[in-house]
Design a protein around this nucleic acid. Structure first.
Lengths: 121, 121, 121, 121
DNA sequence: GTGGTCTAGACCACC
DNA sequence: GTGGTCTAGACCACA
C-alpha cells in the first residue's frame, strides 16, 4: 500500500487516505475480505500519526467500505448496498464537474470519453 | 441571482457561492460579458458578510471565470482558454467518483448515463 | 444454543454472548437449574476463543445469572434477588432511550407500546 | 451546562457528553436553534481536552442532533426526521432491558411504570 | 473567536 | 498485536 500524500493540499490527510483506499478497492487492488494495513503500519510508512489514519479508517467504516474488528484489523467489504446514496452524491458532483468542463470548452463527446476512461480505469 | 447556502455544510460558504456561479454560467444564465451582482448586493440578500462574497469573486477571478473592474463590477468571461487545466482537474475528480460508483454497484452504462445528463442538464 | 455474533460491531464479543444468554433466559429457553453449554462447546461452534466465552460466563456469574461448578459446568440461576440493582440500571438506560425517542418524534403512546411488546415479546 | 463525567466508567467520555446533551435536548433545556457551549468552553469547565468534546459534537452532528457552522458554533436541530431509525434502535435495546427486568422479577406493570416515568421525565 | 485538523506519545480493552 | 480512546498543545481555515 503506497500512499501519496500531499501535505500542502487543503484536502485533509485523512481524506486523502480515504480516497486512495476507495480507489484501490475500486481498482481491485483490494478484494472483498482483504485486510487493510494496520493503522500503525500505514501511519509508520506514511510518516503520519496513528490518529490521522484512525480517522480515515473510521470514515471508511462509517461509509460501509470496511469493517474493523479487534482481532483482524480492518477488512474490506464490498457490500454494494448503498447504491442509492452514492448515486445521489455522484450525480450532484457530476453536475458541477460537467458545468466547469462545458465552460472550459470541453465538448460533450470529450467529457463522456473522460467519464468512460475514468470508469474503465 | 438566488443563492442556496447551506451553513451546516463543511463546504465553505465562499466555495458554495463560487460553485453556484459556475453552474449559472454553464447553464447560460450568465453570458459572456454579463455583469454579476455587486458584492454588497449578493452579501445583503444572502445575509452574509461582504468578505465572504469577495473571496468567492476573487476565486472566480483567479480561475478566469470573471474579470473585475473597479467601475463596472464583476464581468463574466467565458474565455474557454484554460481547457488543459480544467481537463486535468475534471479527470482527477472523475476517477474518484467513478471508483465510488463502481463499488456501489453502478454499472458503466448507468454511470455514463449520469454523465450525459449532467452535461446536457 | 445458536449464537449470532457480529464481529464488526463495537460491542465486545463477550458482551454479545452475555446479552444473548440473558435474552434466552428471559425468553424461557433456559429455566432455573438448566445447564449452559460448556465453554469449549460454545467457543467451538462459534469459532471463537475459549477465553472470550470464559469472560462472558464470568460476567454472568458475577451478575448472578449463573453459578459455575467445576463438575457440572454453568447452571442457570433465576434467583431474582438483585431486583434493586437491576431496577436502577434499567431506569438509567430507559431515560436515555426515552429521550432519544422523544426527540425523534415518537409519542408516549408509541413508546409505551414498544415497551409492552419488548416485555411480552 | 453542567456535565457529570465518570472518568472511571468504561463508557467513553465523548459518549457520556453526547448522552447528556441528548438528554438535555429531550428535557427541553435546549430548544431548536439554541447554541451549545463552544467546544473550548465545555472542555475547559469539564477539565478535558477539546478533542474529546469535538468528537462528541461530531457524533451529535452525524446523528443529526446538531449542526455546526464556523460562524455560530454548534446549534441544536430537532429535525425529528430520523424516526424510523430511532425506532429500530430503541426497540432493540428495549428488548434486552425488558429481558433483564423480567429475570430480576420486575413485573410488566412495574416495567411499564418505569417506562412511563422515563418518558414523562 | 469558532470549529477543523494534526502531532507525539500514551494507556486501555479486546482477542 | 489490534483498534479505541485520551491528552496537551498547536496551527489553520473560516466568518
Amino acid at each position: 500500500m503506497i500512499m501519496k500524500l500531499d501535505f500542502a493540499s487543503s484536502v485533509p490527510i485523512y481524506q486523502q487516505i480515504r480516497d486512495q483506499i476507495v480507489q484501490a478497492v475500486a481498482d481491485g487492488d483490494y478484494l472483498d475480505g482483504d485486510r487493510l494495513p494496520t493503522i500503525r503500519a500505514l501511519a509508520g510508512e506514511a510518516g503520519i500519526n496513528t490518529m490521522t489514519v484512525n480517522k480515515a479508517y473510521q470514515l471508511l467504516k462509517q461509509e460501509g467500505y470496511i469493517i474493523t474488528d479487534r482481532r483482524n484489523g480492518a477488512i474490506v467489504q464490498c457490500s454494494g448496498g448503498r447504491k442509492k446514496a452514492v448515486e445521489k452524491k455522484v450525480n450532484k458532483e457530476l453536475e458541477l464537474l460537467a458545468a466547469e468542463a462545458k465552460i472550459a470548452g470541453i465538448s460533450q463527446e470529450e467529457f463522456l470519453e473522460f467519464c468512460r476512461k475514468a470508469y474503465s480505469g
